[in-house]
Simulated scan of single mutants.
Amino acid sequence: MFTGIIEATGHLSNITRLGDDYQVEVTSTELDFSDVHLGDSIATNGVCLTVVSFTEQSFKADVSLETINNTGFKHYAAGQTVNLEKAMLPTTRFGGHMVSGHVDAVSHVQSVYDNGRAKDVWISVPAELQKYFVKKGSVTVDGISLTVNDVTDGQIKLTIVPHTFAQTTLAKVRTGDAVNLEVDIIARYVENFVSQNSGSSGVDMSLLARSGYLKK
């Protein structure tokens, strides 16, 4: 589990094809590897990867065919800059939101506008995921915990403050860029609970709508 607060950036220093899947090496001079162990999880552009070996400035991880087909790893090449976050600890400040590192879709940046010292970034949303986004809710983009500031049909707006631009891969974001998207996991649990218990618990979609939990 992660928080979506990026600790460092790095780059894919090597990608080795092993049959149908990959083994990647991620190098970073910024990430603290002093407490990394074999089997640890490190979110890499929002994808939860398991450490299979490491040095003082790098780690290797296997990337399954499932991950390749459903994340940006399908298009990554050696040299790709990535956001990095080690798995959260019980003592970690919970500065973002609950992030699983399981990417739901690859989306694309539709537009980028200046907004004072910040920037407004509009990102496309697949139709099947639209229901999980609400204004002032949370979303993970390339591993970064961000606030959804507006929702339209097929898009969400994110306002990126200067610190986030400086410390993540968003510093180079451009229209058309592909990004890994993970919806708020709590929304998925609520949906599953309601669908499994509708009619038996008294909680259903109509009740949630009347109570203001669903966008009309």
Rank of each mutant, 00 (worst) to 15 (best):
Ala61Leu: 11
Asp62Tyr: 05
Val63Thr: 08
Ser64Lys: 09
Ser64Trp: 10
Leu65Met: 14
Asn69Cys: 08
Gly72Ala: 03
Lys74Ile: 07
His75Asp: 15
Tyr76Val: 02
Ala77Val: 07
Ala77Thr: 09
Gln80Arg: 13
Gln80Leu: 00
Thr81Val: 12
Thr81Ile: 14
Val82Lys: 11
Leu84Lys: 10
Leu84Glu: 07
Met88Gly: 06
Leu89Gly: 00
Pro90Trp: 11
Thr91Ile: 07
Thr91Arg: 11
Thr92Asp: 09
Arg93His: 03
Phe94Ser: 06
Gly95Ile: 04
His97Val: 03
His97Leu: 02
Met98Arg: 11
Met98Asn: 09
Val99Trp: 02
Val99Ile: 15
Val99Lys: 02
Val99Cys: 08
Ser100Val: 08
Ser100Leu: 14
His102Met: 09
Val103Leu: 01
Asp104His: 07
Asp104Arg: 02
Ala105Phe: 04
Val106Gly: 03
Val106Pro: 06
Ser107Gln: 02
Ser107Pro: 05
Val109Gln: 08
Val109Trp: 01
Gln110Gly: 00
Ser111Lys: 14
Ser111Leu: 05
Asp114Trp: 00
Asp114Val: 03
Asp114Leu: 03
Asn115Arg: 14
Asn115Met: 06
Val121Trp: 10
Val121Gln: 05
Trp122Gln: 10
Ile123Phe: 07
Ile123Cys: 05
Ile123Asn: 01
Val125Phe: 04
Val125Arg: 04
Pro126Trp: 10
Pro126Arg: 11
Ala127Thr: 14
Ala127Arg: 14
Ala127Tyr: 12
Glu128Tyr: 07
Leu129Ser: 05
Val134Gly: 03
Lys135Asp: 07
Lys136Pro: 01
Lys136Ser: 10
Lys136Trp: 00
Lys136Tyr: 02
Val139Glu: 01
Thr140Ile: 13
Thr140Tyr: 01
Thr140Leu: 01
Asp142Thr: 06
Gly143Asn: 01
Gly143Trp: 05
Ser145Asn: 08
Ser145Gly: 05
Leu146Ser: 02
Asp150Ile: 00
Thr152Pro: 04
Thr152Tyr: 09
Gly154His: 06
Gly154Pro: 12
Lys157Met: 14
Lys157Glu: 13
Lys157Asn: 13
Lys157Cys: 14
Thr159Lys: 03
Ile160Gln: 02
Ile160Glu: 01
Thr164Lys: 08
Ala166His: 10
Ala166Arg: 12
Thr168Leu: 11
Arg174Asp: 12
Thr175Asn: 09
Thr175Gln: 15
Gly176Ile: 13
Ala178Trp: 02
Val179Pro: 02
Ala187Arg: 11
Asn192Phe: 06
Phe193Ile: 12
Val194Pro: 13
Ser195Pro: 00
Gln196Cys: 09
Asn197Ala: 04
Asn197Glu: 08
Asn197Gln: 14
Ser200Met: 12
Ser201Leu: 12
Gly202Gln: 10
